[in-house]
Nucleic acid binder design. Structure first.
Lengths: 339, 339
DNA sequence: CGCGATGTGCAAATCGAGTTGCAAGGCGAG
DNA sequence: CTCGCCTTGCAACTCGATTTGCACATCGCG
């Protein structure tokens, strides 16, 4: 194996090989000045032959743009954020941008500083920020937002960042549909296993459900399967009477379902359970989980699109936030309550 | 909202504010030449106050390094690749590198060209390549490998790239353990739902299982749940007699399990099923799936580590490939065969 | 007092591409 | 022949950080 420092070609060398000046080569590429078609062809052929690609660093230095965007997510390995990431990556690729991943897991402040610095150092032209596990904006985030760096919030609105465009699901509408579905089946006594209290989406979902079940008991979990399991244990231990269980996401729904089933509670005969998200697992557990499908891919795609629009316009001025429609998916976990 | 083109500070401006030359500022930062402690302090204070960060493009241009690495994966939203990505991201972050995601889904050649160009343009210093769905190296990959750009293969060896260091699971060993486990339970008639034929990991896993079940029937799927489901249908339709079913990954195992259960086959009483990977879902389905846990996080971490070592050494010379241990996880889907 | 040894700052060059003003050569049309 | 247009080259400068050669201190010590 030879050394890894094989030097790439420079524009100089291409120009020399073609017997023209760098000016001409540059203009052939940019088209900002007319170039004789024959010369252009010769140059292009040499570029292909040599496999010349302009140096990204030099370009970035001159233009002030890196053609990279960042994506800040709590944990890229989560299904949920993975879908968002894929959407962002797709759109970035379509618009010819690269994608840099910034993991915010365990909200280490040093990490946070590090990826906001990507904006400051101009390593990225903009940032898609997914704050799905944070109640409020951190100081650092506020500072960046105030400096008017191009930022788009994906999946979750952040209080205090009202001027920053966002792309979210219509949580309220989805929750309404879930509520009506179970009310129409005849349920009257419901429990809600919600997400973090204070999180915008949590508030919306609880509100939507309570439109049909004004007195539903509300518990708060952390979106993980274990948390649904534990909260269901609490419900059983306290002999809470209910026939409908709303969980703020599928993982908690599935955790709760397991716990209830282990206790001999039949789903959906004794208790109906619904989730939110429509993860892969929702259709695999038995019974299949009735849920609300969120278009995470779409959230990713649209966030990236808004962001790149803002980057290329040079401002987020006039960029509208987007609410994406959701879809009720009825499976086997819901049925009329026991009579 | 003000305009998004708020200019970052330059070193020039810091120097001017401190009443010194850029040289001095640069040297206080790099420490490559002694600087008067008082002056240094004054400069540092100004840097903090202004929030100055050196421009990435300029740095990259001068140094020839971007302090970014790339990760090429088929689909970032898959659990499997998401775990790898997280591992890579963690290690990159620890070594103070950024991570650029290159999605190779649907193996669009234009996409492929695009992320290999990241290497050529020096946007990234090296690439972690996950070829888990490809049998052979593409021309483009061969070209890049020959050009001795720093590359590490993660999760899957690629035939023809023997000089490129790789980090993989010990597929053979894991499959051996699975085979022995079912043989020890008393099974004698087995079917293998393998991955893509020709894939290195597939070959290893089949070999490992066949050590215990030399005559096992081998079918090939595409790693997706639906494919396990469909192949199980085929088995049922053809009345193939077996009491043990090996799937090359958990998703196919779960798909097959569902199909068998729908047909009234009891798991594990009538048929034992095992998978590979230990995905989240494996512990959620019922019965829980016996499987082999792969350390995807570790694969990601170690790949990134090898890569960064190679980048900083300037060559992949002397970098050793790694095989990561796996662990047999016994759950409810395996039991002695019906007598 | 003077010598070398340090410490310290400045100006200038460098990395590779993008851009501009100016000028030169070639060509066709009037 | 000349005017104007098209093509192209040249030289110079920009982007911002890093690094060099050079020079001016200042200090200790014989």
């Amino acid at each position: 194996m030879t050394d890894a420092t094989a030097k790439p070609w420079t524009m100089q060398q291409i120009a020399a090989a073609a017997g023209v000046s760098v000016t001409t080569v540059s203009h052939t590429l940019s088209g900002k000045r007319p170039v004789n078609p024959e010369t252009a062809l010769r140059i292009r052929r040499l570029i292909d032959e040599f496999g010349y690609v302009p140096d990204a660093g030099a370009r970035q230095l001159k233009s002030g743009r890196s053609r990279m965007i960042g994506l800040a997510v709590p944990d890229i390995s989560h299904w949920y954020f993975g879908r968002i990431a894929r959407g962002v990556e797709e759109m970035a690729n379509e618009r010819d941008y690269g994608l840099i991943i910034c993991s915010t897991s365990n909200s280490d402040p040093r990490r946070e500083k590090r990826y906001f610095n990507l904006l400051r150092t101009r390593s990225i032209d903009g940032l898609v920020y997914t704050a799905s596990r944070e109640i409020a904006a951190t100081d650092e985030l506020m500072k960046i937002a105030e400096s008017s760096s191009p930022i788009v919030l994906a999946d979750e609105d952040v209080p205090g960042l009202d001027d920053v465009p966002s792309v979210t699901s219509t949580n309220y509408g989805g929750a309404q549909e879930l509520g009506r579905h179970l009310r129409d089946l005849g349920h009257t006594r419901a429990v809600i296993i919600a997400g973090y209290a204070g999180l915008h989406s949590t508030v919306q979902r609880v509100r939507g459900i309570r439109e049909s079940f004004p007195n539903a008991l509300v518990l708060h979990g952390d979106f993980e399967l274990a948390s649904g399991y534990a909260l269901a244990s609490d419900l059983l231990a306290n002999q809470v009477g209910f026939t409908a269980l709303f969980a703020s996401n599928d993982l908690m729904a599935i955790g709760a379902m397991r716990r209830l089933q282990e206790a001999g509670v039949r789903v959906p005969e004794d208790v109906s359970i619904v989730g939110f998200d429509d993860v892969d697992m929702a259709s695999v557990v038995s019974p299949g989980l009735t849920t609300v499908r969120q278009d995470m891919l779409g959230i990713g795609r649209q966030s990236a699109e808004l962001l790149i629009d803002a980057v290329e316009a040079g401002s987020t001025e006039g960029i509208q936030s987007i609410g994406l429609p959701v879809e009720l998916v009825i499976r086997g976990s819901t049925a009329p309550p026991p009579s």
